[in-house]
Write a protein that binds this DNA or RNA. Sequence first.
DNA 1: TAGGCCATCTGGTCCT
DNA 2: AGGACCAGATGGCCTA
Length: 211
Amino acid sequence: MSPKVLCTSRDSVTLTRFSVRQPVNEAGHPGEHSPCKPLIVIGGETSSSKTLKHSTRCNKAGQRGRRRVKANDRERHRMHNLNSALDALRSILPALPDDTKLTKIETLRFAHNYIWALTETLRLADQHGHTPEYPAVGSELSSPTSVSSAEWDAASPAKSGYVTSADFDQRNCYTSAHEMNCKIVSSDQSSVTFYFKSFCGENYLKNTVDL
DNA sequence: TAGGCCATCTGGTCCT
DNA sequence: AGGACCAGATGGCCTA
């Protein structure tokens, strides 16, 4: 499952696996508009307006239809912005080995785990008396390597300063539905190695950060 | 073919 | 009144 970028619609990205649907009117026929900007006219029936009452009703329906079209456009735009933000989040997460694109929920969970792992790394660095050195803006973070589920299961958390994500959540009065998604497996004066679940299939990742 | 994921439409609610 | 946000419904595409 690796959709490819097809086209941009305003500030958004459209994916080939999700062809932009033509709007379907009440008769079920697709519209004739540009694929990147579906338009649906609702309540815009034309009438010979035999009576003022009928005309008023049609005008109200037409106004309602125009409002609905505008609202649809705003909603589309809003969701595109949301997707852009998710893409931005994906772009700063470590690349997966097979370059698989994370789904929305996977992206959020992966980010949660990754932030936790990095937070723990900083905490351990501080514990060892290091001053964290942040990479220059635009520089690449080290990419994690793939870990088998067996290796994940076998990995023992580091004894020194080890904290589970569940502990982390408790310290912050959170409850976590998914515990133990990260493991600090080793830490010494010079580096911290952690495993974390990517939430993409059965992928487990390993990363070592130099202190 | 079923299930997952997604984009879009839609009506409701809240806020300015 | 109009915009932002949200959740439900719908239907298309893809994969196992």
